Amino acid sequence: MQNVTDRTSNPFGLRPPFDRSDPGDQVAAFGYGDANADFHVIGDFPGIHGGETTGIPFTETEAGVEIQAVLRETGFVSGPRDKPVLENCFWDYVHMCSLPDGERPTDEDYADLERFFDAELRAINAHILLPVGARATDHVLREYTTQRHRFDLDMPSLHARDIRGRGFMVIPIADPVEWVDGDREAIVSKLEAVLASDYRQTKGVATLVG
């Protein structure tokens, strides 16, 4: 079943509960891309993965640009870097709102925005979840699999590994600023392998296993 929206940015019209952005910044980096996507890439917040001035996830910052480059290489992205065109891929953050320069979200801030992230994730209903970094990976494994207790939150060992969830396959991605030799190649190879597989069977298999 497909969604009934073709809007690229903020396709479900979410309204953030607060505006603490710096002058000239966007209120939030809203969910962006193909609302009918099979692949859902999940970052942390605009201050580290980008979008404070563009309003688009995975732009501007070193980490965001590197994630975007990997997705370009694997065929999900085309067009300008600051306003990319996504195919079969959707991007958002566990904390979408922009914050004052240098400020990080508190646990309370993440909790305030959890319902927005959860609503969007369930509306997209992708087959493959790709959380980027420790915070996003921890949240996705806790909330959308039954397997968080099986793993230490050790991103080098979780990177590019497939984990069965409750109706999803989860493939964590270590934050690009922490990548070492081979990490970029590992996630590119994993995505290429998934694309070459019958990944749409993930829904049924993961529901039984997770």
Rank of each mutant, 00 (worst) to 15 (best):
N3V: 10
N3R: 08
R7K: 15
S9W: 06
P11T: 02
F12C: 02
F12P: 01
G13H: 11
S21Q: 06
V27K: 07
G33C: 12
D34W: 07
D38T: 06
H40I: 10
H40P: 08
T53Q: 12
T53P: 03
G55H: 10
G55A: 11
I56C: 12
I56Y: 07
F58Q: 09
T59P: 00
E62F: 14
V65Q: 03
E73W: 04
F76Y: 08
F76C: 03
G79A: 11
P80M: 05
R81V: 13
W91D: 07
C97K: 08
S98F: 08
S98M: 13
L99G: 03
P100E: 13
D101N: 11
G102K: 12
G102V: 14
T106L: 00
D107S: 08
D112G: 02
E114P: 00
E120D: 03
E120F: 01
E120M: 02
R122L: 13
A123D: 06
I124N: 02
N125S: 05
N125H: 06
H127M: 03
H127F: 08
H127N: 14
L129P: 09
P131S: 11
P131N: 07
G133R: 02
G133H: 03
T137M: 02
T137G: 01
D138Q: 15
V140L: 04
L141G: 06
T146R: 09
T146W: 05
Q147C: 04
L153P: 06
M155L: 15
S157L: 13
S157F: 06
D162S: 04
R164S: 05
G167S: 11
F168H: 15
E178T: 11
W179R: 11
A186G: 05
I187S: 13
K190L: 14
L191A: 06
E192P: 01
T202N: 00
